[in-house]
Computed example of a mutant assay.
Amino acid sequence: MRSQVIEVTTGSKERVYDITSECEAFARTQGDGLLHVFVPHATAGVAIIELGAGSDDDLLAALGDLLPADDRWRHAHGSRGHGRSHVMPGLIPPYATIPVISGKLALGTWQSIAIVDLNVDNRERQVRLSFLSD
């Protein structure tokens, strides 16, 4: 298995951050197999989603409705509503696995790979890309 860690700066606001190009670059020389994308953070997730057509904003709005940034959370350190960031990976897991065929990600036409980050207190993220060949 081959593995690489990439660094991602998600910034100081809630964000859906596209990592498709980094995943494509890693998979390009690998041949056939599976790309596993993992975010080793308790407050981030990995989503396969259409980006750039409003879906990313819709996802953040839906998460805002499901997980409001208010004072209801028992996990209450950091910025207001920080506890919801720890609940979010229960809905958007911190991993995804994508088939790779001849070095190309077998994503659908409009699918992208994105980091979903509601935690405005942690701007720096690591993402582990692992490739399991057939």
Rank of each mutant, 00 (worst) to 15 (best):
M1G: 12
M1E: 08
R2M: 12
R2G: 03
Q4E: 14
Q4G: 09
V5P: 00
V5C: 10
I6L: 14
E7N: 12
E7I: 15
T10G: 10
T10M: 12
G11M: 15
G11S: 10
K13I: 07
K13H: 12
E14C: 09
R15S: 10
R15G: 00
V16L: 07
V16W: 01
Y17H: 15
Y17D: 01
D18N: 15
D18V: 09
T20H: 07
E24S: 08
E24D: 11
A25C: 15
A25G: 14
A25I: 14
F26W: 11
F26L: 11
A27Y: 00
G31F: 05
G31W: 07
D32M: 04
D32V: 02
G33D: 06
L34S: 02
L35R: 05
L35E: 04
H36Y: 06
H36W: 08
V37T: 13
V37I: 15
F38V: 02
P40C: 05
H41P: 10
A42R: 13
A42S: 14
A44P: 05
A44C: 14
G45V: 04
A47T: 07
I48R: 06
I49V: 13
E50Y: 11
G52R: 14
G52L: 14
A53W: 11
A53N: 12
D56C: 11
D58L: 09
D58R: 11
L59A: 01
L60M: 10
L60S: 02
A62I: 09
G64K: 05
L66C: 01
L66A: 04
P68R: 03
A69G: 01
D71K: 10
W73M: 09
R74N: 08
R74D: 01
A76N: 13
A76Y: 06
G78M: 10
G78I: 08
S79F: 13
S79M: 10
R80S: 06
G81K: 01
H82P: 14
G83W: 00
G83Y: 00
S85R: 02
H86T: 03
V87R: 01
M88G: 00
P89I: 01
P89L: 03
G90S: 15
I92K: 00
I92L: 11
Y95H: 13
Y95N: 06
Y95C: 10
A96S: 15
A96H: 07
T97I: 11
T97L: 02
I98D: 09
P99Y: 06
G103I: 00
L105A: 07
L105Q: 05
L105S: 08
A106E: 10
T109L: 06
W110G: 01
W110I: 06
W110P: 04
S112P: 11
S112R: 12
I113W: 04
A114I: 10
A114Y: 01
A114C: 14
D117Q: 08
L118F: 04
N119R: 07
N122P: 13
R128W: 00
R128C: 09
R128Y: 09
R128D: 03
R128E: 06
L129V: 05
L129Y: 02
S130A: 12
S130D: 02
L132P: 03
S133T: 13
